[in-house]
């Protein structure tokens, strides 16, 4: 097995390696160092072993934040992936409509995250917001600042509005990459549109959908700016997701040790989920697509 013909290629990945080292590996090492110490200030730190991990793992508020986060991410995937695929299937295949759809879909993706939160605060305000006032005028009591269910619905709606276009764009790219011959063969066989979707389009979209699921899971699992601006984690702590709780510990209380231990557990959870999702999706539909 001759694999080492051109070693110059290694130099090309060197810049990426250096950037990743400075942006990810060195900060991660620092977090590991912080997680085993009680830090009072520069030069004032004491080794405490696994004390912070023990404290964080037994923290009831972290347990509920984790459950909330898992529920949120599952709902995000269950809504955004099918909806994104449906939008991609419904999009025009040629003509001016393609550009129009792509621009419209890309718009929510271009807005800064904290601005999205602000937009939705105003949009859903029960007194002046277009949606909030309309819903209240229809006789349905809706107030995301006071009612937990309303807060959840608003955060979910905002998330779906913000990120479904990404799934749709990815799925659309996957659909466009399918050669016309497949459709012609299906037509000759008299395949129904469901059969075409199930045996041609879905397996061919596997690659892009893997990326979509991984991106949406990780992003929704790490969500911070939008719900922080929209609800601040409230009412009570009903929309306090993991990252919001983490920032409360790290910045609000300045407990760097527990925050670092929390971050590492958070990181391990994300790592495990991504690995499992990646492996599962790698094996989905392999029979049809190869």
């Amino acid at each position: 097995m001759e694999k080492w013909e051109n070693n110059r290629a290694w130099f090309l990945i060197l810049p990426v390696f250096v950037i990743v080292a400075f942006s990810a590996i060195i900060p991660l090492m620092t977090v590991v160092n912080y997680s085993v110490q009680d830090i009072f200030g520069p030069g004032q730190r004491f080794f405490v072993g696994m004390e912070w991990f023990r404290e964080v793992i037994h923290d009831e508020r972290l347990h509920s934040a984790l459950l909330r986060q898992l529920a949120f991410s599952c709902m995000v995937l269950l809504i955004e992936i099918p909806l994104g695929v449906l939008i991609a299937l419904a999009m025009p295949k040629k003509g001016w409509g393609v550009s129009a759809c792509l621009v419209l879909l890309a718009l929510p993706l271009l807005i800064p995250w904290n601005v999205i939160g602000t937009i939705w605060i105003i949009f859903t305000r029960p007194d002046i917001g277009l949606l909030g006032k309309t819903v209240n005028d229809l006789g349905i009591a809706f107030d995301h600042t006071a009612r937990p269910l309303d807060a959840w619905i608003t955060v979910m709606a905002m998330e779906v509005w913000h990120w479904t276009p990404l799934v749709a764009l990815l799925a659309y790219a996957g659909l466009r990459a399918i050669p016309e011959a497949y459709y012609q063969a299906a037509k000759i066989d008299g395949a129904s549109s469901w059969a075409v979707f199930r045996h041609i389009q879905l397996p061919k979209m596997r690659g892009v959908l893997t990326i979509a699921v991984l991106l949406r899971f990780m992003d929704s699992f790490l969500i911070y700016a939008e719900p922080f601006v929209l609800t601040g984690g409230g009412p009570g702590d009903t929309t306090t997701f993991l990252s919001i709780y983490l920032v409360k510990i790290a910045v609000g209380q300045f407990d760097l040790g527990p925050a670092a231990a929390f971050s590492l557990i958070y990181f391990l959870i994300v790592l495990l989920f991504c690995f499992v999702f990646y492996q599962a999706l790698q094996n989905v539909g392999t029979g049809e697509s190869r």
Binding site: M29, V32, N33, Y34, V36, I39, P42, R45
Partner: peptide, 15 residues
């Protein structure tokens, strides 16, 4: 490297 707050156990871990 003081800002990285190294300790002997974490150094051994990474090594």
């Amino acid at each position: 490297l003081e800002w990285m707050a190294w300790t002997l156990p974490t150094a051994i871990f990474f090594v």
